[in-house]
Amino acid sequence: MSLRRFILAVQFLTRLPTPQVSDFRQEDLSRSAVYYPLVGALIGGLLAAPLYVLGDRPWLAGVLSLLVWVWVTGALHLDGLGDVADAFGAAHRDPQRFLEVLKDPRMGVFGVVTLIMQLLLKFVLLSELAASPCWLGIVLVPAWARWGTLWWSQRIPSLHGNGMGERFTWQLSARAMWLWLPPLVALSVWLAWPLLLALPLVPLVALWWKRKLGGISGDCLGASVEVTETLLLLALVVLGPLAMGAA
């Protein structure tokens, strides 16, 4: 394990305090992406704390877990989701118009409404999960979503040759993506098998972007992370009781 690259991955994906990395090189950002699923599990561990401590007060556990989620990630992927929602809302099925709106830093009504609905969804699902037998599965939800970024970046062309999605994966091998799959599957089987929904979900997201736009950008990656996390939370809440019943 390269401690330097792991620290860079933590710095890029979270607001957690880390040692300063000197002599930064552009390729470091790309190579650090191999640790994104591990950073996702670290985020998931922080989200699990309120659910564990306040399991008998699910609404409070849900809102505190959501606050931790937004803070620790710096709303990085929420920003991408809002931008993508604005672009789709104003594009009227015109791919060129989509790209133009995506570059606009201002947030429009489509983005605002989408972010409100996304945060509301996560709050309700986290509150439900606090009272669920599969609550510990939250640890792997961000891990699977960040594994998804490796898949999408490898399997979908970049919409912007010098965009963020291109820059962090240009030296990332497909081997890094496959190495994470066995431990994620094994831990999902152990903690909460509904998380295995990620196995078809991640490729389906890639297929959707290919057919919709023919490529992906950094904002699209962020939006995909948010959607994947919400759907995995939904799977834990809806299928969790069945999973524990079968066990």
Rank of each mutant, 00 (worst) to 15 (best):
M1K: 05
R5S: 12
F6K: 01
L8Y: 04
A9W: 01
L13D: 08
R15G: 12
P17W: 00
S22A: 13
S22K: 14
F24D: 15
F24S: 11
R25T: 10
E27V: 11
D28V: 07
S30R: 02
R31D: 12
R31P: 10
V34L: 14
V34T: 13
Y36R: 04
Y36Q: 07
L38I: 12
G40K: 01
G40N: 05
A41S: 07
A41W: 01
I43A: 02
V53L: 15
L54H: 00
R57P: 11
P58E: 00
W59L: 15
V63K: 01
L64D: 07
S65G: 15
L66D: 06
L67I: 11
W69H: 14
V70P: 06
V70N: 02
V70T: 09
T73Q: 04
T73F: 00
G74D: 06
A75D: 07
H77I: 03
L78I: 06
D79R: 02
D79Q: 05
L81N: 09
V84Y: 01
G89I: 05
A90F: 09
A91G: 11
A91C: 10
R97S: 13
R97W: 00
R97A: 13
F98A: 10
F98S: 12
V101G: 06
L102C: 07
K103D: 12
D104Y: 00
M107A: 14
M107T: 14
V109K: 03
G111I: 03
T114R: 08
L115E: 03
L115S: 05
I116M: 14
M117G: 14
L119S: 04
K122L: 07
K122M: 11
F123S: 06
L125K: 00
E128L: 15
E128F: 02
A130I: 00
S132E: 03
C134R: 00
W135L: 14
L136G: 11
L136I: 13
V139Q: 05
V141P: 08
P142I: 00
A143S: 15
A145D: 08
A145R: 03
R146A: 07
R146F: 03
W147Q: 11
W147N: 08
L150N: 05
L150A: 04
W152H: 14
S153H: 03
Q154D: 14
R155Q: 15
I156E: 08
H160E: 15
G161E: 14
G163S: 10
M164D: 10
M164P: 12
E166R: 15
E166A: 15
T169M: 12
T169R: 15
L172E: 06
R175F: 10
R175E: 13
M177F: 11
W178H: 10
W178Y: 13
L179Y: 10
V185H: 03
A186I: 10
L187T: 02
S188I: 04
W190G: 10
L191A: 13
L191R: 05
W193P: 15
W193L: 09
L195G: 08
L195Q: 03
L196G: 09
P200F: 01
L201D: 09
V202N: 04
V205N: 04
W208S: 12
K210V: 04
K212A: 15
G215N: 01
G215E: 03
S217K: 01
G218I: 00
A223W: 03
S224C: 08
E226V: 06
E226G: 06
E229W: 02
L232C: 10
L233R: 02
L234M: 11
L234H: 00
A235H: 04
V237G: 09
L242S: 13
L242R: 09
A247M: 12
